[in-house]
Design a protein around this nucleic acid. Sequence first.
DNA 1: ATAAAGCACGTAAACGCTTACATTGCAAGT
DNA 2: ACTTGCAATGTAAGCGTTTACGTGCTTTAT
Lengths: 396, 396
Amino acid sequence: MADDKVTRRSRGGTGRTRLAEVARLAQVSTATVSRVFNEPAKVSDSIQQRVREAAAALHWIPNAAGRALASRRSHIAGAIIPTLDNEIFARQISGMQAVFAENGFTLLLGCSNYDPAEGLNQVQAMLAQGIEVLALVGENYPPQAFDLLRQRGIPYVLTYGFRHDSPHPCIGFDNRAAFRQIADYIVSLGHKRIAAIFQPVDANDRVVARLEGLREGLAAGGVTLRATDLHIGPSSMDFGAESLRRIMASKTRPTAIICGNDNLALGAISAALDLGFDIPNDLSITGFDDLAIVSRIAPQLTTMRVDNLEIGRLAGQQLVQAAGGGVPVQSHELRADLRLRATTSPPRSAAGATAAAGDGNDADDHKPRHQQPRAGIRTQRVEHDLQEDKKQRRAP
Amino acid sequence: MADDKVTRRSRGGTGRTRLAEVARLAQVSTATVSRVFNEPAKVSDSIQQRVREAAAALHWIPNAAGRALASRRSHIAGAIIPTLDNEIFARQISGMQAVFAENGFTLLLGCSNYDPAEGLNQVQAMLAQGIEVLALVGENYPPQAFDLLRQRGIPYVLTYGFRHDSPHPCIGFDNRAAFRQIADYIVSLGHKRIAAIFQPVDANDRVVARLEGLREGLAAGGVTLRATDLHIGPSSMDFGAESLRRIMASKTRPTAIICGNDNLALGAISAALDLGFDIPNDLSITGFDDLAIVSRIAPQLTTMRVDNLEIGRLAGQQLVQAAGGGVPVQSHELRADLRLRATTSPPRSAAGATAAAGDGNDADDHKPRHQQPRAGIRTQRVEHDLQEDKKQRRAP
DNA sequence: ATAAAGCACGTAAACGCTTACATTGCAAGT
DNA sequence: ACTTGCAATGTAAGCGTTTACGTGCTTTAT
């Protein structure tokens, strides 16, 4: 009796078939089963077959928790985005998810809703889940988040924006340069009086950079952006529309409006059309993002295209590599392409002018890299994203 | 020497601080530490405080793998969607993610790209990761996926579509009824010759249901949908546009076109405008989904709104409850709301008619539930989604 | 006063897998 | 013939938590 004091403790398990059962059926050790699926080269063919058959027969699916615990690899990648309610972020996730899936990673997704504190929460939750790598999509995550990541040696990358002087690896485009390009283009068309409608700048480096680029380009063209011509507010179509109404109600109307993104631009366009303005003859408008819709409505919006799918893919690739080989994540700068469409043209005053040459402004220096606008731009056959239609999209 | 045969095997661990270290610092057992965070009621206040302080001091983040293994709860929820490149699915995920986050679940996301086989893969990967619940967003997952889920007792739910006779719990709207409603409305306006542009039906119950509802409604109004008037193809704007051109090139043109979704409708509208048709006077067009954009462009699209955010939220709630209490997931049917906007009106022939009363068709039976169209619909002030602008959206 | 019943906490056995190390068998080297 | 070396497999110790079950000790009922 005395030696029988070992009470058998059972906690019942999960009920799922375990690796041990596969091993028993295949008449091998658990180690061998594990090797078959993780280091097949180390196991003879005959035994491999036996094991695989046993696994299939038992419908065995390995338990990720056990595996993660033992191997200290979770095969989980994390991504935190401001919101899914935005085509550009959704596309990045889409690209990333594809790469992760190809490489045996599953994607843990978190949304911060533009709240840095919530972003930090998400980072913590993800660390708890044992993510191996993390993509921080969009901007503005609290510094503490990065501390946590570095402290634990988790490879991470910031996407969407790119800055040469960023302390973090980042994959995206240069906001400043992009808006500089837009400004240069508008100036080169001969516009003298220009307004802008922007999203909030507070605690948002990227938007600040956009404004910098914009001011820089305008300044180079001898144009200044007056305080009253800069409208900042929520990034909604409504705000775009409201701002436009306010702008066009002023006594000295601009001939061009540069918007911080497509949403604002769409709002501005719809309001302008409502007021009876002719776009682009009375008023040129530019956006940013090249949302799917903006090239399919009339008038097609001149905007800046960023390949968000590619950003997502690149980020995914970098992170997968970093997770595997310990290679550091490399930053990548992508081009943002100016898509000249039907909402921009020289101002009426400069109608006949060949894209505002001479005229005392020295913007010419910046023009060579842009395709010159043509008079017939409005009716030009605008490129379609053929891809979009090739992958035959089923429908909801 | 002989009794010293136990070689100390060390695998180095993760380097992260462990619960055991917190326990040592707080001078309690590991069990107590665990209780502090999982069953605080069972631990005295003084010790709780000590433990919490120790945990904070060490920046301890519990290891989810260990926890999952021991507790057999992963606190991971899965969601599989056809694609993120679609506002409606993205919104569902958005709503779901919020609910999950509130309830301590992290979201594992998978995309099937409309490929059932890939969907099954994703299901397996998720099961391996130990998801506790799963949302299958959209349609068409292979039957085997459900077998796996049932076999393992994982609560799941299908979202977007709803069918009373579905063998699975589902949360969404009734596709058949929704299209019946659209058909009834169009018939009630007095249209006699009606065409349709739809997404592919193959292996897609929901689209089949839409067509059924459509045919049913038309039949009730004495209208038949001729084979040549039904165009089926990829759910892209381009196909919508192409179909419209083909339709309007026929000798007997329809006065109304019912589209399977907004994308197709947008394409159709833009093609129709290009051809110089007056919408809605020459041609009425309807969509489905109420994408954000369709109420902000001219002419504003008459379409059906489904609250995808709510679908996601409901699904999340149901799954969270199912995970906790073992309550079965309950199906929910949501209303789809017809949004009457500017792309529909009575046909020219019936111009003065008060919404096609009499006229020998007995569609009146079905009308009461719809708001009657007014002559001035084109210029009516259309409702905005105020919400959209309230939550001040920051911008990319 | 005494037994029964809580209560607060500790002990240590799982959880399902990977992997360092041990073992075995067999071909090649001396 | 006898090490040596390598390749294929087995043994069993963790990985970091949770939790069933003990263990004292303080209440409460009898």
